[in-house]
Design a binder for these strands. Structure first.
Ligand code: MN
Ligand code: MN
Ligand code: MN
Ligand code: MN
Lengths: 220, 220
DNA sequence: AAATTAATTTAGATATAGCTAAAAATATAT
DNA sequence: ATATATTTTTAGCTATATCTAAATTAATTT
C-alpha cells in the first residue's frame, strides 16, 4: 500500500504529536500542526485508517499503528538524511534546509536513500541534533534535557534544538550557540526563568526561559 | 505563475517533441509521449494555453512559447544535473537514474540547483551525453551524428545516446560501448544497415542499424 | 461532392486534497 | 440533569488530473 505525499506528511505529523506513537492525537491537534482545517483532517484520518497506518475511532482521536510507525520513521529518516546532505555537501545553513527536505523526503527510491546514507558516512544525527532512524526504523535516542531544566553550575554540551524554525536558528547563530558547544549554567533568574550561560569556557550568553526551553543538552 | 508537476512533465514532453520549439506538436503525439489518452491531453493543453506557456489552437496542435521554452529548459536542467549527481556521487549506473531524476526535477528551490551545479563542478553534459542548459536556459549543443550516418573508415568519439531506456543502456554496457569511447567504422552491410565498429582501437563490435541509429558521435 | 477515416474535443465519471457552513457528538458548567 | 461550549464530523463545493464514451472537426478517399 503506497501513501501519497499528503498522507506521508499527515502520518509524520501524527507520529510527532503522539511522541513516537505513545499517545493518542486529536483531530484539532493534527489540524493545527498541518496548518489546515479540522474538516480536512477528518477526511484524511478516514483514509489513513482505511490504509491501516492509524487506528481511527470517530470523535476519540487516533493512534498510530506499528505499520504506521514504520512508515513515518522511513519518511523521517529520509528527511533528516537530506538535511545532512544539504548542510554537509551543499553548504546550506541549518536554517535553510527544512522546507527543501520537506519535499525531498517524498522521493521514492530505496536505493537512493541507501546510497545517500553511505555517501554521507551513515550520519546518526541531523543538523538540528535529531537522531536519524536506521533502515529498520530503529532510533538510538540520547537522554537530552532542555537548558531551563538544568541547575546552576551544571555543565554539558548542546546536542539539539527543539524548534527548527529559521527565526530561532538564525537567532542561535547570531548569539553563537551551536550544536556541539560546551556549556555551563552560570545563573538562573527566579522571576522570569531567564538564564546566564557560559559557552565554550569563554563567552557569556543571556537567554529567556523560552529560548532555553528550545535548546537541548546532555549533562556531563 | 507556478506549474504543477504534471504541467511541468507535459511541457517538457512538448519541448522535446517540438525539437526545442521549432515544430508544432499534435495532441496524439503528446498522448503517446506521456503514455496517457488524447482526451487527457486536450484538457492539459487548454490549461497550459491559459498559462501562456504554449500557444494552443484547437484541432491544430500546439507551439511552445518563449516563456514555455524557458520553463521547460529549467526542468531539463534540473533533471540532468540530478542525473549527474546520481552517477558521479552516488554510484548509480547510467541506466538507473532516469526515473529518480524524473521525480527530483520537480523539487522547487533555485538555491538547491545553483549549489548542486557548483558541487558537481558545473557539468556540461549528463550521463547520457545530453547537454545541460545553463541557468539562463542556454544550451551549447555539439554537432552530433548517429553511427549509421557515418561512412566506412570514418573515425570519431561516442558523445551521447538517443535512447536512454535501461534496456538499451544495459545492452551498451554489455557490449562495451560507452560515452567517450573512440570509434572507427570498419564495415556497413548494405542489406540491413548493420555495422562493424572498432572501439578504442582494440575491440570489434557488430551492431544492427537500429542500435547504430541510437548512438551519437562527433567525427574527428 | 459525398462518404469514410482519423484526429481531437467534450461530456460525464472517479480519485485526491482542500475549503466553508451546518449538523452532530462529546465535554464542561450551572 | 440541563444548558452551554467545544470538538469533530458530514454535506456540499472547488481544483487538479486522470479515464471512457460520445460528439465533433479535419483530412483523405472514392
Ligand atoms: Mn513533506
Ligand atoms: Mn531536522
Ligand atoms: Mn518529472
Ligand atoms: Mn539523461
Amino acid at each position: 500500500m503506497t501513501l501519497t505525499t499528503a498522507e506521508e506528511n499527515y502520518l509524520k505529523a501524527i507520529y510527532h504529536l503522539s511522541d513516537g506513537g505513545t499517545k493518542s492525537v486529536s483531530t484539532n491537534d493534527v489540524a493545527a500542526e498541518m496548518k489546515t482545517k479540522p474538516a480536512s483532517v477528518s477526511d484524511m484520518l478516514r483514509k489513513l485508517g482505511d490504509k491501516e497506518v492509524i487506528e481511527y475511532r470517530k470523535y476519540y482521536g487516533v493512534n498510530i499503528t506499528e505499520e504506521g510507525k514504520k512508515r513515518a520513521l522511513t519518511t523521517i529518516r529520509k528527511h533528516r538524511l537530506w538535511e545532512v546532505f544539504l548542510v554537509d555537501k551543499l553548504q546550506f545553513a541549518w536554517d535553510e534546509v527544512h522546507e527543501v527536505a520537506e519535499e525531498l523526503e517524498h522521493i521514492q527510491s530505496p536505493l537512493l536513500i541507501q546510497r545517500l546514507d553511505s555517501y554521507l558516512n551513515f550520519p546518526k544525527f541531523d543538523p538540528h541534533g535529531d537522531p536519524i532512524p536506521d533502515e529498520y526504523g530503529d532510533v538510538r535516542a540520547r537522554p537530552r534535557l532542555a537548558l531551563n531544566e538544568m541547575d546552576i553550575d551544571q555543565s554539558g554540551q548542546i546536542v539539539a534544538v527543539k524548534d527548527s524554525s529559521a527565526a530561532f536558528l538564525k537567532y542561535l547563530d547570531k548569539v553563537g550557540a551551536y550544536i556541539g558547544a560546551r556549556i555551563k549554567i552560570l545563573d538562573k533568574v527566579e522571576f522570569d526563568g531567564s538564564m546566564e550561560i557560559l559557552v565554550d569556557q569563554k563567552k557569556t550568553l543571556f537567554m529567556s526561559k523560552d529560548v532555553a526551553a528550545n535548546i537541548l543538552a546532555i549533562q556531563s
